[in-house]
Simulated scan of single mutants.
Amino acid sequence: MGAMDELKIDVVDAEHAGELLTVRRAAFVTEAQLYDDPHIPALTQTLDELVEDLERPDVVTLGAWDGSRLVGSVRVGLEEDRALLGRLAVAPDLQGQGIGTQLLMSVLHYLPEQTQEVWVFTGQDSKQNLSLYAKHGFEHQYDQNAGDLTYAYLRKILGGMAGEEESSAVGG
């Protein structure tokens, strides 16, 4: 896992939008194949739309860099006391090495203090994603249909700033 120790996680700004778009598209091609749908939003978003999204005050997009290469990202939408994670993406050649996990763990450091629960959504057939989220204390709440896709929504309640300890003691 040598190189991954160098992973740096930081906010992605507009100057990295092109790289982010590339990583997301590469990562979501496998999702698109899984669902046989080339039109999932992560693949159809334009560069301009992405830049606009990166500049929104209620969105934090985190990136994981291995040296100068952007290798993963996650988008965090903030609303009142909730955060909604989406678009968790890791470069295909580096999947399965814990980058997604590190991104997930890092999100907590970027949440406003009033955030009480974190939600994630992913396709209900995305077994890898679902098991990753479950492992980190997210519990399935409901499914929602969006066109031909069904998204699973999962929630994690934060117990104060150090939410990790309580949740792992309770749920396993």
Rank of each mutant, 00 (worst) to 15 (best):
P112H: 06
A3L: 12
D48V: 11
A169Q: 12
L108I: 04
E165N: 07
D125I: 08
E117Y: 08
A17D: 10
L78Y: 12
Y151R: 12
T61G: 07
A26L: 14
S131Q: 12
E165V: 08
Y133V: 04
G147D: 07
D13C: 07
A152L: 05
P92N: 10
S73I: 02
F28G: 05
G123T: 11
A64C: 10
R69W: 09
P41S: 11
L84C: 00
V90S: 05
G67M: 09
H140G: 03
D125K: 15
L108T: 11
G137D: 06
T101K: 12
V76Y: 04
L84M: 01
Y133D: 00
M105A: 08
G2H: 07
D13V: 10
Q128D: 07
V11M: 01
P57F: 02
L130K: 13
R24W: 00
A146K: 11
N129A: 15
S167D: 00
H109T: 01
M161Y: 11
H39I: 01
A17N: 10
A26W: 13
W65I: 04
D48C: 01
L130P: 02
L149Q: 15
Q128M: 02
A42D: 13
E15S: 15
F28R: 10
D48S: 12
L158Q: 10
I99L: 10
E164P: 04
L7P: 09
R56K: 13
M105I: 11
G137H: 08
V12R: 03
L54K: 08
G160Q: 10
D36G: 14
V51K: 14
E165K: 11
K8P: 03
V107P: 12
L50E: 06
V23I: 14
N145W: 11
D5C: 03
I9R: 00
I9W: 01
A146N: 11
P57C: 04
L43V: 06
G163Y: 08
H109P: 00
L7F: 01
P112D: 02
V59W: 04
S126C: 11
A134P: 02
E49F: 06
L85E: 00
G77L: 07
K156I: 04
G18M: 07
I99K: 05
V59Q: 10
Q45A: 11
T61D: 03
E6N: 11
Q128F: 06
Q116M: 07
Q102P: 08
Q128Y: 02
S168E: 13
L158R: 14
V12G: 02
W65G: 05
V51T: 12
V118Y: 01
L104M: 15
E15I: 07
D10W: 02
K156V: 05
D81F: 03
W119A: 01
Q102Y: 00
E49Q: 14
Q124G: 05
G147F: 06
E80P: 05
P92T: 13
V71Y: 08
L34Q: 12
V23K: 05
A14F: 09
F138C: 00
A169W: 00
E52A: 14
E113S: 15
F28I: 06
K156R: 15
D125T: 14
T150H: 13
A17H: 12
Q102W: 03
Q141T: 07
E15F: 08
D10F: 05
L70P: 14
L130F: 01
H136A: 02
G63E: 06
A169G: 08
Q141H: 09
L34N: 08
Y35T: 01
Q124C: 06
D93K: 15
